[in-house]
């Protein structure tokens, strides 16, 4: 290759972008600190519970969306969350593991199942994938219900112990006897997950995932093994979702097959579309807004689902970019003329 001196300005810009990416770590840390202050202000157990539920749902929804963005119509998020919950509960209650080992192990087990299901099915059109993942989820549900030993049958598993206490000698003991302890655990899990997903999107992996979406034939022609990338995304996201499932089990002390029905995936799909799947922040917005709105109907699940699905239909028809596209849409109305100007440069390859 010829040695051409790179344009110094341009390189400066690139370095600046990389610096900014490094800084993003600070933003995540800042978010953690900021949300970490909430329990100091907010004493209500109820509000803390709403926030905790929001945190693990954000994990479910953002990992779900990442799989969607690899072009796969995933319909079995509930399967992997369920695997995480059951695996970790059984490891703790039957094998006597510590929660802190069981949770990552549950994530690995779910990732293993994702690889197992992913390799034969991810190469197919999204619809087949939807059928298989939904069927997989319901098969698991059937297994949980049918086998009382060790899954507890239709009634599920009771009296799940909370996470093992952590003691930093002379400083603090976190024994999960209070809501705030769970709050910090859920918050930490969420921030770590969001950071991993953020890096997956910003790094070279995100570049390749996008390239696969933009043109899979060309991606293959330059040597990209599309299957490996899709399986990687599927396994990592399923594993992270499963760890949140494990948290859920040890937080609520009780799981049953009903917790992991297809409705969970439907909710995640709704959060994703309503918030806007183009951007990563969209899903978070969707989850937060809808879960807050859903609190109004807490206890009336039919009305809640009615509202959610109605919301979904309205957004699909009138705001295809989701809630996150709303501010951009409003500012763009003014600059329509500029956009038209830009059209002129567009070249029709036909």
């Amino acid at each position: 290759m010829t040695r051409v001196r790179p344009d110094p300005d341009r390189q400066g810009k690139f370095l600046g972008e990389m610096k900014a990416q490094q800084k993003s770590r600070l933003y995540f840390l800042g978010l953690f600190v900021l949300l970490g202050l909430v329990p100091l202000v907010l004493r209500s157990e109820y509000y803390l519970h709403v926030l905790i539920a929001m945190f693990y749902h954000v994990i479910y929804a953002t990992t779900y969306r990442f799989i969607l963005r690899t072009g796969q119509f995933h319909f079995g998020a509930h399967a992997f969350v369920g695997i995480g919950a059951y695996a970790s509960v059984l490891l703790v209650m039957r094998a006597g593991w510590s929660f802190w080992l069981a949770m990552p192990a549950a994530g690995l087990i779910a990732a293993f199942f994702a690889v197992l299901i992913g390799y034969p099915t991810l190469r197919l059109k999204g619809i087949y994938f939807a059928i298989i993942t939904w069927g997989f989820g319901d098969t698991l549900r059937f297994i949980y219900m049918r086998f009382k030993e060790p899954f507890g049958g239709p009634l599920g598993i009771f009296a799940i112990p909370g996470p093992n206490p952590i003691t930093i000698p002379g400083l603090i003991t976190i024994d999960f006897s209070q809501k705030t302890h769970f709050y910090f655990l859920a918050l930490a899990l969420m921030i770590v997950t969001l950071y991993i997903l953020h890096r997956m999107e910003q790094s070279r992996f995100g570049l390749i995932f996008g390239a696969i979406r933009e043109g899979d034939r060309l991606a293959r022609a330059v040597g990209i093994n599309i299957m490996n990338y899709k399986v990687l995304a599927f396994a990592v996201c399923s594993g992270l979702g499963a760890m949140a499932g494990s948290f859920y089990a040890h937080y609520t002390y009780y799981i049953s097959p009903l917790d992991f029905s297809v409705l969970l995936t439907i909710y995640l799909a709704i959060y994703t579309v309503v918030g806007g799947q183009e951007r990563y922040a969209g899903v978070i917005v969707g989850t937060v807004v809808l879960m807050l709105a859903g609190e109004v109907f807490a206890g009336y699940s039919h009305y809640q689902l009615l509202m959610y699905s109605g919301f979904l239909i309205v957004i699909l028809l009138f705001l295809p970019g989701g809630l996150i596209s709303l501010p951009g849409l409003l500012t763009r109305v003014g600059s329509r003329a500029e956009e038209k100007e830009g059209e002129k440069f567009r070249n029709d390859p036909a």
């Binding site: 439907i266 799909a269 709704i270 689902l305 699905s309 979904l312 699909l316």
Partner: peptide, 14 residues
């Protein structure tokens, strides 16, 4: 697909 999903559960909850 999402629209059809929305409709199904909208009608079900209705």
């Amino acid at each position: 697909i999402f629209l059809a999903i929305g409709l199904n559960w909208f009608l079900e909850s209705t």
